[in-house]
Nucleic acid binder design. Structure first.
Length: 548
RNA sequence: GCGCCCGUAGCUCAGGUGGAUAGAGCAGCAGCCUUCUAAGCUGUUGGUCGCAGGUUCGAAUCCUGCCGGGCGCACCA
């Protein structure tokens, strides 16, 4: 999969020949500035010190010692402080086209994961309300990260964890109960810190309709079950509208039923990192670098229950025991304090779970802008921008794209007006348009793009600079996917898409395909560009329309 | 107070784990339609990379200290 393999090896041989004792980890990269060629290496700069010669002299020696396969490189230059720049022969560039068409929907895939199982947990919203825009960002990120891992050879499980046990659920149940009683003409006595949203009233009404025998909502447990069930249904509908599918829905309550929580507790005690103080049971997390110890079981006066910490650890032990070589958790940055704690909990078990397990992708908050003003999100007040509203307003593709186009750890400003606009200013529209235009060529030609074959076509006629640019960009795609998967950063793919779309638009505008002497070769190029645009979009869960 | 993240063009953001003159989009300015979608294309203006030190051939990138913003520091999840 490594790019420019022949160059890489030739450089390594040349380095040995000029007397380099050890081969440093040198780079062979595509320079930003095309004047610096198609591939450049810093090898001479790295060798200079050890050889006691100026970098440019080393570069000169290297170039002399270089033995390259015939017809591979057009020109070699030494530039700047001692970079060696390679200009590939034109014929090399066009080689990407048969590769793209042969691989088709698989072009860009790799096998770094070698089929190992990975778990990606995301959204994991408590069933206490509708999904808000922050969950939307998480859904888009988590799903894209899962796809990136699949594309690089991991066997991925998408997982959703419900905290259906804790105090928040109780508060939810009491809030619904209060609204039920309000329906009976009694003043609503909402619990302290309860839920005020309009959706609570809706659930109360539905409860009464569904439970004629308990119109007072006296049965708190029945109210709780009903409310959780209703909200899960709502959340599932939102996720479905967003096109996200989970393989596993994991309920916190199941960890108690299966005895995993108890088992984890026993293991921690057995490993010797626990103690009792003030009637509570503590884990000595300071043994592992935490700034204070953490309570695992509250003292009796506080209810004597486990804190969320223990089931969290039990849950990740469960992931480990299910055989996941990697567990990746996508969460809002407001949860970052759990990162070290969960990891420490796993270390304290002393069962040889790697220190970096699980991995975390934390994302910052989302600000929604509309008409130049910020839309405030307040759960308490019940004024609430939900994922569903956003999807209904701007469409699923735009929502996904916008959530993915920024790095997770920068704040995201979601411009609703931009997301809806049908112009080049809107990146998702711009990219999809490029795909539609490529498709349009085949529609007019009455040909199937999938049926285009490069065999017997003289690709050597693709000599325009815009065509060379496109060929290089197409060749870069697999490395972009690999890098995005490595860093768990889907925004690299949206960035790539915008660049490829720009080149495609420029080429389309400047040259014609049909009826030109270069028609056959350009059809191959258009089919390949269309394929890669589609692959990148589909990888992100975004559609690639044939016309707009 | 402590911990994590962020600070790059007027705006929104990239910057491949230390490399060449710091990039892109938008906005601004100037242009381009007998054609497969002008729903687009071309050119151009714009920078103390928050500040100050340090590490080295070389720093937006690594280290230290400050300034500014966000988040978190529960026997809540």
């Amino acid at each position: 999969m490594k790019a420019h393999e022949p160059l890489f090896e030739a450089l390594a041989r040349a380095a040995r020949q000029i007397g380099a004792s050890a081969l440093p980890e040198f780079r062979l990269e595509t320079p930003r500035d095309p004047a610096h060629g198609d591939a450049a290496t810093n090898l001479a700069l790295l060798l200079a010190k050890g050889l006691g010669k100026p970098p440019r002299a080393v570069a000169d020696q290297l170039v002399r010692a270089l033995e390259l396969p015939a017809g591979y490189v057009e020109k070699v230059e030494i530039a700047g402080p001692g970079f060696i720049n390679f200009f590939l022969a034109e014929a090399q560039l066009a080689r990407v086209l048969p590769a793209v068409l042969a691989a088709g929907e698989g072009y860009g895939r790799g096998d770094a994961g070698r089929g190992r199982p990975a778990n990606v947990e995301f959204v994991s919203a408590n069933p206490t309300g509708p999904l808000h825009v922050g969950h939307g960002r998480q859904a888009a990120l988590g799903d894209a990260i899962a796809s990136l891992l699949e594309w690089t050879g991991w066997r991925v499980t998408r997982e959703f964890y419900y905290n259906d046990g804790g105090a928040q659920i109780l508060s939810l149940a009491r809030s619904v109960q209060a609204r039920i009683q309000e329906l009976r003409g009694r003043p609503a006595a909402l619990p302290e810190g309860g839920y005020h949203g309009e959706y609570i009233r809706d659930i109360a009404e539905r409860y009464v309709a569904a439970h004629p025998g308990d119109a007072e909502g006296a049965d708190l447990e029945a109210v709780r079950r009903f409310a959780v069930q209703e909200l899960r249904k709502e959340q599932d509908a939102d996720l479905q509208a967003f096109g996200v599918k989970f393989d596993v829905y994991f309920l916190e309550s199941s960890l108690y039923g299966s005895g995993k929580v108890e088992q984890t507790l026993r293991r921690l005690v057995a490993a010797g990192h626990t103690y009792e103080k003030d009637g509570a049971l503590w884990l000595k997390t300071t043994d592992f670098g935490d700034d204070k110890d953490r309570v695992m079981r509250k003292r009796a006066e506080k209810g004597g229950e486990y804190t969320y910490f223990l089931p969290d650890v039990a849950y990740h032990v469960d992931k480990w025991e299910r055989g996941f070589a990697r567990a990746i958790n996508v969460q809002g940055a407001d949860h970052h304090s759990t990162v070290t704690r969960v990891r420490i909990g796993l270390q304290a078990l002393e069962m040889s779970i790697p220190a970096g397990y699980p991995e975390y992708v934390l994302h910052q908050m989302v600000t929604v802008m509309k008409g130049g003003a910020e839309m405030k999100i307040s759960k308490r007040a019940g004024s609430y921008m939900t994922v569903r509203e956003l999807v209904e307003e701007v469409g699923r593709d735009a929502v996904r794209y916008f959530f993915l186009m920024r790095r997770g750890d920068s704040h995201l400003v979601f411009d609703v007006d931009l997301a809806k606009s049908q112009t080049e200013e809107n990146p998702v529209f711009y990219v999809q348009m490029a795909h539609a235009r490529m498709s349009g060529i085949f529609r007019v030609a009455a040909r199937e793009p999938a049926a285009v074959r490069p065999e017997g076509v003289d690709l050597g006629v693709l000599v325009q600079p815009e065509e060379a640019d496109l060929l290089k960009e197409l060749a870069a795609f697999p490395a972009i996917v690999a890098r995005a998967a490595e860093t768990l950063e889907p925004h690299r793919v949206t960035g790539y898409l915008e660049g490829l779309a720009r080149l495609a638009h420029a080429w389309y505008h400047k040259y014609r395909v049909l009826g030109e002497p270069e028609e056959a070769a350009r059809l191959v190029l258009a089919a390949a560009v269309r394929q890669v645009l589609a692959n990148a979009l589909h990888l992100l869960g975004i559609s690639a329309p044939d016309r707009m």
